[in-house]
């Protein structure tokens, strides 16, 4: 009898423990390890590079990681056509050239491109709206991979759908290849508003909110408890100056991606260093003034208001 009783109690305790534990604590060791790498990239800058030479410049300037791709978003925008995963040869050359993590992009929903990137032992896969989507309904099931994924979002619902699919890092999308920070700001503010709303919601409203957001209910429970996403939250799409980077950090980004902003500027090396420093000292205005001095011209950029809807990358992904 005592055996049964003890067992029953253990079972009840186990169930209680399980329901009390947060979603993120119940995830696989694999996922946690991958979120761990995202933690290590905080306070850093991830720079787009198109060859080994640029990757070395980025590493020397203090980049925390590089994103290997064939064309920066500004050129993808200019050239048009279908943008796909980069040539593995070019990715390998970049992996050999630097010691910092190397990321690469796969098309939304293109799990074969992602598997190829995994076979190349890439450190992080960006399932990216900057490339032409391969699937108009479904994103990649990211729990099936050993290597981590970062995905873009414009709001809380999109962020939580990607995390539910297994993303280990989220980046607000912004509008890549424009050098205009307005969309990055809009998406970060929208995401943060979404989180604040959940925090202040009574429990009985969470299920309906989950339905309206199209987001997993359990992730809403976690956000109500912790007040933040269960994975690091970075900013992308439109950062061109140290001040832009500092702005995004102050709005709640934990790190920034800089795409065209560095190698489309007059003096990439100087600008890369300056943006790295601005991400660390984002709330020290004296330092930011020094950092911003004499950097040469930033990328020319495109005003986001002048883009028609089907020219915007941010609308890709569901």
């Amino acid at each position: 009898m005592s055996y049964l009783k003890a067992n029953k109690k253990n079972y009840a305790e186990k169930v209680k423990d399980m329901s009390e534990k947060l979603w993120s604590q119940r995830q696989s060791a694999q996922w946690k390890k991958n979120v761990g790498l995202a933690e290590m990239l905080k306070g850093g800058v991830i720079m787009d590079v198109v060859n080994a030479e640029q990757a070395i410049i980025a590493e020397k300037a203090g980049a925390a990681a590089v994103m290997a791709l064939e064309r920066v978003p500004a050129d993808i925008r200019k050239d048009g056509g279908v943008a796909r995963m980069s040539d593995p040869k070019m990715i390998r050359e970049i992996q050999e050239a630097v010691s910092i993590p190397v990321m690469a992009k796969a098309r939304i929903g293109h799990f074969v491109e992602a598997k190829i990137l995994e076979a190349l032992e890439i450190d992080f896969i960006d399932e990216s709206e900057v490339l032409t989507p391969a699937d108009d309904q479904y994103h990649i099931y990211k729990h099936d991979f050993q290597v981590p994924f970062v995905c873009g979002c414009r709001n809380l619902g999109e962020a939580l759908r990607r995390i539910g699919e297994g993303a280990a890092m989220i980046r607000t999308k912004g509008e890549a290849g424009t050098g205009d920070v307005i969309e990055a700001v809009r998406h970060m503010r929208t995401l943060k508003d979404g989180i604040r709303k959940i925090q202040n919601m009574p429990n009985e409203q969470l299920m309906t909110e989950a339905r309206d957001l199209g987001a997993p209910y359990e992730l809403l429970l976690e956000i109500k408890e912790t007040g933040k996403l269960p994975v690091p939250n970075f900013s992308a799409g439109g950062v061109a100056t140290p001040a832009d980077a500092a702005l995004m950090m102050q709005l709640g980004a934990e790190s920034v991606f800089v795409g065209s902003g560095i190698f489309k500027s007059d003096d990439p090396e100087k600008r890369a260093k300056a943006i790295v420093e601005a991400v660390t000292y984002y709330n020290d205005y004296k330092k930011l003034a020094e950092i911003s001095e004499d950097l040469g011209a930033p990328m020319v950029g495109i005003n986001c208001d002048h883009l028609i809807d089907n020219e915007k990358f941010a609308g890709r992904g569901w």
Partner: peptide, 15 residues
């Protein structure tokens, strides 16, 4: 902490 040693050493030196 952990992170990128190349980034951290650069910032330690520059500042």
């Amino acid at each position: 902490p952990g992170g990128e040693s190349t980034t951290i050493i650069r910032l330690l030196k520059n500042f």
